[in-house]
Computed example of a mutant assay.
Amino acid sequence: MIILDENTKCVVQGITGKQGSFHTQSMLDYGTNIVAGTSPGKGGQDFQGVPVYNSIEEIREEMEVNASIIFIPAAFAKDAAFEALSQLETVVVITEHIPIHDTLEIVAYARKNNKILIGPNTPGIITPGVGKLGIMPGHIFNPGDVGIVSRSGTLTYEVASQITQAGMGQSTCLGIGGDPVVGLDYSDVLQRFQDDPGTRAMVMIGEIGGNAEEKAADFIARNIDKPVVAYIAGVTAPPGKRMGHAGAIIEGESGTALSKKTALENAGVEVADRPSQISEIIKKLL
């Protein structure tokens, strides 16, 4: 497992909002160690037994916390992210539609201060059997030794479900986020899986647009010796049209599914043509 383990003590920022309360309940039901929440002006209340504070600073005066998950509307997400990153080690930003100049500032601050930033516009992270900081459906995951890193939440669920149904399981699954600029990238997560003794193989799920997958291919060729299986979504996507995620747009010759698939195959990665092939390829490689 990586990042999210038994020692993770999490704060939910925006715990009393519609999204925050719904997903906090789901995370609690999964067994996640959520110790507090924030909702400015509602300090002193509680949600399902989780105490609510006005700020992270107030929480830290009373208890130890080291991670945050953010369900704050896009207009206020930058302030929430800076509040968390200035005081905690790990921050997961679920919020989508954050202005890109805000995201650039958030990501730059996280990297400068060596903090773990997942997202924005991410389904989050799950370590099966331990906890989840995110919005993924917990029942499809199973503890195991396959690490998954993805730009797509829905494809993460699809691939994880098929790995589970094939009698295997996942060490940790992490969505890096679908925006053009994100915190942790593929290489950051792949290196953590490489260093994790509980991960024997990795699945990398990519999509058209940008050059993140090509950069990951170069990183894999130089740094990763565990088996990596990949899938690239968007084979039939027309150039110049955004497909779902803000980052999923082909411009010029780069960013196509073919260019990404070629780069990965040249790095020794087996690339599946369909998500349904991934679990069989993993079985063959292990």
Results as ranks from 00 to 15, higher is better:
6 E>K: 14
21 S>Y: 10
22 F>Y: 15
24 T>Y: 00
28 L>S: 02
30 Y>H: 09
31 G>Y: 05
41 G>F: 05
45 Q>R: 11
51 P>T: 04
55 S>I: 00
63 M>W: 02
69 I>A: 08
69 I>N: 04
71 F>S: 03
75 A>R: 15
77 A>D: 06
79 D>Y: 06
83 E>M: 00
83 E>H: 02
86 S>A: 13
87 Q>S: 05
88 L>K: 02
89 E>S: 11
97 H>C: 12
101 H>F: 07
112 K>G: 12
114 N>S: 14
114 N>G: 02
121 N>D: 15
126 I>C: 10
129 G>A: 09
131 G>I: 11
135 I>N: 09
137 P>F: 04
139 H>Q: 15
139 H>G: 06
141 F>G: 05
141 F>Y: 15
144 G>P: 14
147 G>W: 13
148 I>K: 06
150 S>T: 12
159 V>C: 11
159 V>A: 10
159 V>M: 14
165 Q>A: 12
166 A>V: 10
169 G>D: 11
171 S>Q: 12
173 C>N: 04
174 L>F: 08
176 I>P: 06
178 G>V: 06
186 Y>T: 04
186 Y>A: 07
189 V>K: 10
191 Q>E: 13
191 Q>H: 15
193 F>H: 03
195 D>L: 10
196 D>V: 04
197 P>D: 12
198 G>T: 09
212 A>R: 05
218 D>S: 12
219 F>M: 08
222 R>S: 14
223 N>V: 00
230 A>T: 07
230 A>N: 02
234 G>H: 03
238 P>I: 13
242 R>W: 00
243 M>T: 08
243 M>K: 09
244 G>D: 07
246 A>R: 10
260 K>D: 12
268 G>S: 09
272 A>L: 10
275 P>C: 13
286 L>M: 14
